[in-house]
Design a protein around this nucleic acid. Structure first.
Lengths: 159, 159
DNA sequence: ATATATTTCAGAATTATATTCAATTCTTAT
DNA sequence: ATAAGAATTGAATATAATTCTGAAATATAT
């Protein structure tokens, strides 16, 4: 095998993924019933999908309000990164409140999705975390008033 | 209780949520071991968290490339919605390729996160789905070159 | 075409887990 | 203090996960 990493998924794999994306806690037995296969066969496929890095994570979507993460914002920023190096992005990614970091087309630009308790917490974050990252030339914050559709990953407070 | 829907989560609940957000397929037995509690007690809490809508969904994060969703873009749009009604957002939310729909501050503005196979698919989507939604006055597409951090929900092809 | 290797699958056996429930302990308000 | 309600435990049993083996199907090499 010279080529390398082309991942081929058949109909059965895709069905498994569809069911597990919908409900990650579906039992292997139920999966097998849906697919009309033996549980052992299904289990083997799931393990391969994990190994092949098709399945990245089983996660739980939480109600943001319930864990006191009521403010959602997108911050776009201009940075003076040298081509190829993206230390800025990596440092942004380390901040727990930062849910997503995307390097976007156009300029030296990053788009960051942030979730905090309120606007005061967001300002704290910008003062204490963002301001310590070098290369950031400017930021522009967009507050989300209402989210109609979403999948998320939240920062759960210690206590 | 006159107030109504204040959800109170204790330390144990938060630990459960933290563990389950990290790995939705953790067994109840393992959860109990981690928390040094009886499995039955943990199970009861998890069920309550589901009932109280703290837990929204157990989901599986997939490798976008593996399911042929290689292009990620953010589309910001101006719409002529009447205050309060947000049919536009609801219609956007119905499109499977649309992962997120946020109503953002500033003007009558929506921010939409879209994932497709490639730029041709994105253009198809804009021609065939977006253009059929009334009230949209203008759109601006931002292509993501690289994602450094993310949680997602993907459209899995039928076959 | 044929042999060989690889992959996929089903079914049985074993081990582990989920689930239920009655009894008990812990909380909280009075 | 104490009653009422909530949460937890532990044991029993119902379900499920996991492992293994061999058969079948598929792919690859000769």
């Amino acid at each position: 095998m010279i080529s390398g990493n082309e991942i081929i998924l058949d109909k059965t794999d895709l069905s498994i993924l569809r069911l597990m994306q919908e409900n990650a806690r579906i039992s292997n037995a139920d999966l097998a019933r849906e697919l009309e296969m033996a549980p052992s066969a299904v289990l083997e496929r799931v393990k391969k999908l994990e190994q092949k890095n098709v399945i990245l994570q089983y996660t739980t979507r939480l109600n943001p309000s319930a864990v006191n993460q009521k403010l959602l914002a997108f911050i776009s920023m201009k940075a003076s990164d040298v081509m190829g190096s993206s230390d800025t992005a990596k440092q942004l990614a380390k901040i727990p409140e930062v849910q997503e970091v995307h390097h976007i087309a156009g300029e030296d630009c990053y788009l960051v999705k942030v979730r905090t308790a309120d606007s005061a917490s967001l300002m704290d974050l910008m003062r204490n975390s963002f301001s310590k990252i070098p290369n950031i030339l400017s930021t522009r914050t967009t507050i989300v008033l209402e989210t109609v559709k979403e999948a998320q990953q939240l920062v759960i407070p210690e206590k």
